[in-house]
Structures are given as C-alpha cells and as structure tokens.
Design a binder for these strands. Structure first.
Lengths: 153, 153
DNA sequence: TATTGTTATACTCTATAACTATA
DNA sequence: TATAGTTATAGAGTATAACAATA
C-alpha cells in the first residue's frame, strides 16, 4: 500500500509489473496522490522553506490567533509532543510566538509575528499556484468532485 | 497540511478553530484521507500483522513471481535501500524468498513462500472487508468516482 | 484528578551516499 | 561505466510514557 512514484517501465522486452489487488484499493491511490501532492508542494514552496505540516501550522495560527497548543494539536492531528519541537523551530525563525494566556496559566497563546504573517502571505500565494497546477492536472470538474468528496469525508 | 484526526470540538462556549485556506487545499484532505484509511487498514489487518507497505510488497511479489528488488522498488516507490530491510523481515517471518536469478547474477528473484501465499490470501480477505467499509462510508457511487479519479492520476 | 506544555525514548520512514559484485 | 543489492547515516514523523505546573 506504499507509493508508485512513476508508472512502471513499460518496455516491450521487459514483462509488465502487475499491481494485482492494489488496483482495487483506495488507500493505495490515496497514498500515491498524497505523496505526489506533497512533493509538488515542497518544490513550489522551496523559496519560503516550509513543509506542508509547517504551512498548516502557520495557516491555523494565522486564522485563530491566541489558540493553545492543545487546540492546534487537536485541529491538525499533530501530537502535542511533536508540536513542541515544531514551534521551537518556527519561533527560532522568528515566525511565531508563545505568549502567556491571560485566562489559564497552563496555556500558551499562539500567534504569528509580523514576519510570520508576511512569510505566510508569500507561502499562501505559492500554494495558490500549487493548487492551480493540481486543478489543471485533474481538470477543474474532476478536481471539484474530488475535493468535495474528500471534504465531506 | 497535516492531519485532523477528528473534527474539532464544537462546543458552544469554546471558539471554533478555523482551517482557513486549508479548506481549499486538496493536499490537506488527501492527507487526512490517507491517514484515516491507513489507520483503519492497520486495525483490520492486526491479526496478520501486516502494515500497508508490507501488504503492498506481498501483493506485488505474489502477482509477479520472480521480479527483482529494483522492479519492486520502482513499482511501489519504496527506496531500494529500504526494501532490503523490509525483505529481511518478511524473510525472517518465512513469508518471502530471495532466489538467485538465472539470467543475471546481480539480481534476486523474489517469490512468496507457501506460507507467504497463505498469509497473503488471509490478508486479502481482511483488506476486502476494509475496502467494503470504505465503500459503505463513502457511498458506492462516490467511492467509484473517487477511485477512478485517483487511478487515472 | 485532569489538563497543558514539556522531555525522553523507541520505532518507522525518507533521503543520501558509498561500497561490492556483477554486467 | 552502469546496475543490483547492500550498508550506514541523518532527518523527519509517529506513538508512548512520564513529569511539573496549574486547574
């Protein structure tokens, strides 16, 4: 159920490799799609040096200033423990801040720095181009069907 | 662009966490789908103790007896280096074999052992149930649209 | 008692580079 | 020279458990 990066070599002399039952496994194709998209995303956002996960963290902080790490963790499905390291990095890069929460001393209120906001704006523009590439590749009709089916899931 | 395991808590008192632009990113939803499917797959195949990647390796070897590690690697997008370890494990479990290739002394001809074939048969049955669960969850019409769109990709 | 952020550990996966033996 | 399989390493991601501070 792992990924096939490229179609297998279809040389006339070499025997074609069969996928067998994987051809009827949605998980196999979902994985292929996800890896392909992430690779494209990483390439397109190379100039801002953000991974898909880092991008998602900045987007959610940007859209929910003051949220806690636990909320961010639950929203994106990133382990609380893992978030700590990620936020350290983003903070070292001057993109995010952890401020004391006024209501609850255990919490941190997360927000973007001004520089974080600026970088995120650039990243969003690049991710728009990435998405436009996907739309073109799928065809806009199939793209819409796909994203709507997955969104409801 | 990471995963949200469950919808965020929609308590009336707590502010709803917004996904922002992630709502318009196919990669975000593709990742969610893939992780969800893999988690279900792992749960369903717990009794045969096969990961999605191990399952895919057994399926492709089963459908292409005698193929080489390089061919398997290219088909599934698993690094040649990584395959070595995976095949060691499967071999230690008595599921696969690496036989000398008659034509080319550099190659190994991969095949399932009888036990590997039996385990794969059981695993395929479990994966059928997993797939049936997906079809039910999506609805068979939407499932078909999805898998056909992804297969063509 | 439960939750938040944190540290630590072990395992998996990915990405490389380099080595050997063969072609 | 190039290819197949292998070894080794570093980085990222995942899954846990445990801890201190706070609720």
């Amino acid at each position: 159920m792992a990924l096939r990066k490229r179609p297998p070599p279809r040389q006339t002399s070499a025997p074609m490799i069969q996928l067998g039952i994987l051809n009827r496994r949605l998980g196999y194709f979902a994985r292929r799609l996800q890896v392909w998209i992430f690779q494209d995303f990483i390439r397109r956002l190379a100039s801002v040096d953000l991974s898909p996960a880092q991008f998602s963290v900045l987007v959610v902080i940007g859209a929910n200033a003051g949220l806690s790490q636990a909320e961010l963790s639950a929203t994106l499905g990133i382990e609380r423990a893992r978030l700590v390291r990620m936020l350290h990095r983003l903070e070292r890069r001057g993109l995010t801040q952890r401020l004391p929460s006024s209501a609850d001393a255990r919490r941190h209120a997360l927000r973007l720095t001004r520089e974080g906001g600026r970088l995120l704006a650039r990243a969003k523009r690049l991710s728009d181009e990435h998405e436009a590439g996907l739309i073109e590749r799928f065809g806009s009709k199939r793209y819409r069907i796909l994203i709507e089916a997955l969104r409801e899931f």
